[in-house]
Design a protein around this nucleic acid. Structure first.
Length: 453
RNA sequence: GUGGAUAUAGCUCAGUUGGUUAGAGCGUCGGAUUGUGGUUCCGAAGGUCGCGGGUUCGAAUCCCGUUUUCCACCCCA
């Protein structure tokens, strides 16, 4: 027996049904992106490793898929280096390319490299797979899609507003009820400053991000274990316990962060943004959530996260502003703000809530089944006409028994079958069977079109 | 990267303290029905029991290694 086929760990095949469902998600997102004036770009699956390395922190470097150099990849490696067997050092010499880890770094590279042909503000969207050499888990894969929309080269909070509207519109169209959580990195910086732990900002944000998940007690323990002083942790408590409306929270923060210029600027940004949001009447609930820190350290302003209110699955979208997006590629002073839809999780939410539309537009509307070659030939012009009218139609290619041909239609959920034999040809008609009701009727081409369109 | 579980037909799973020829349901194919699918009935095909080694008269079953998938942690979408 030949070997059992398999695919690499953490990757998936998609059946026609799954692909149709995924396209429903992608098409919905795409059409909203376009509605707001975003244009699509694509970048290669592989980037030069030097472009990717060091952009995602130490953890990130480990999770990069590296591509072995073509040809004799060991040429130019000295005996000593081979004996040393230092995988990390050797990897840098025998692999010069890697699979992209996200769509943001390729965007930064794209902007810098194509600056001659783009003008700011540059509004682009990108829907492509990314790869991470992570250990797969439920809802986590080594190959998955990201759907990003970013505005590059504009500092205006109007962009944040538009991205929030996009989130709102997409989830309204997908019929998913969501809460949009907002925070601001500058407020987090201000807090760290006030409690005298500015240099520990990352540890603080990582810890308080878990508040919902592990509770206040455990968060405090983690803070202390990361070297945050007891006094600082105590000062943090009233901030973690903030409550009230968004405006009330901001008001309370203003007094707490009074001596931090950065903090006050963050508060002012959020006030502006909430006021802007009030003018456009969103469906989603907007919530200022100070525990929202997100792992990504490159955010510098507004931070956005979306969770589904009817399903417990974690965040289904995220985003934020990152100043100096292109600085790492030698083009300083360009700000970016973007959002990303988590297609895999959205798929899970739609599945759980049974929200996929039943009638896929990609589906075949009518299948012709025949008894012989003459009948098949008779069908060809009919098929052509139907297809010209945009009606998805197909002909069963083999002269199998009618039973077999019919069950094919049944399995594909094709709603109509056109049966053609000598009798039908004689009358220049087709026996049209409605597969749902079982009713069938001798029809002319025009009658077929009127019935199934 | 750390820890735990798992692997038997295309799929979902049974399989007794280790004992003849490893089973079921679903699916597939054929027939009942040569011009009619989804229901029903009958029949058939389909397995190196993840892979490699060990213990034993004898291993799907016990032991070791390895891989896979799943779960938790780290991190993340």
């Amino acid at each position: 027996m030949s070997q059992k086929p398999s695919i690499p760990k953490g990757t998936r095949d998609f059946t026609p049904r799954e692909t149709a469902q995924r396209n429903y998600i992608f098409d919905t997102i795409k059409s909203v992106f376009r509605l707001y004036g975003f244009q699509q770009i694509e970048t290669p699956a592989m980037e030069n490793l030097i472009t990717l390395m060091g952009k995602y922190g130490e953890e990130g470097d480990k999770l990069l898929f590296k591509i072995l150099n073509s040809g004799d990849f060991l040429s130019g490696i000295s005996e000593e280096e081979l004996k040393e067997a230092n995988s990390l050092r050797l990897a840098g010499k025998i692999a010069e390319k890697g699979l992209r880890y996200d769509l943001t770094v390729p965007l930064a590279r794209f902007v810098v490299q194509n600056r001659h042909s783009i003008s700011f503000p540059f509004k682009r969207y990108q829907i492509q797979p990314v790869w991470r050499a992570d250990r797969p888990q439920k809802g986590r894969y080594r190959e998955f899609y990201q759907c990003d929309a970013d505005v590059v080269g504009s500092n205006s909070l109007m962009n944040e507003l538009e991205l929030i509207q996009i989130l709102d519109e997409v989830y309204q169209r997908l019929k998913i009820k969501v809460i949009i959580k907002l925070n601001n990195r500058k407020i987090l910086s201000g807090i760290a400053e006030i409690i005298g732990e500015s240099e520990n900002l990352t540890n603080i944000t990582v810890a308080i991000d878990k508040l919902d998940k592990i509770g206040l007690q455990k968060v405090n323990e983690e803070l202390l274990s990361k070297g945050i002083s007891q006094g600082a942790v105590e000062k943090l408590q009233p901030i973690l316990n903030l409550h009230g409306s968004n405006a009330e929270k901001l008001q309370q923060l203003k007094t707490v962060l009074g001596s931090s210029a950065t903090g006050l600027q963050g508060i002012s940004e959020m006030e502006t943004l909430f006021n802007l949001c009030d003018t456009v009447s969103l469906n989603a609930v907007l919530s200022l959530d100070l525990t929202l820190a997100r792992g990504l350290n490159y955010y510098t302003g507004v931070i956005i996260e979306v969770i589904a209110s009817d399903v417990q699955i974690g965040s289904i979208s995220g985003g934020g502003r990152y100043d100096n997006l292109t600085g790492m590629f030698g083009m300083p002073g360009v700000s970016g703000v973007g959002i990303s839809f988590g297609a895999e999780r959205i798929y899970d939410v739609l599945t759980q809530l049974n929200l996929f539309p039943e009638n896929q537009s990609e589906q075949t509307k009518i299948l012709f089944v025949c008894f012989g070659e003459k009948e098949q030939a008779y069908c060809l012009p009919l098929l052509k006409t139907l297809r010209e009218l945009g009606i998805n139609a197909e002909l069963y290619p083999d002269l199998d028994k009618l039973k077999k041909q019919m069950s094919y239609a049944d399995q594909q959920s094709i709603p109509f079958v056109g049966i053609v034999g000598e009798n039908e040809m004689r009358e220049n008609k087709v026996m049209l069977r409605n597969m749902k009701t079982g009713i069938q009727q001798l029809c002319s081409l025009k009658e077929i079109i009127d019935t199934i369109q």
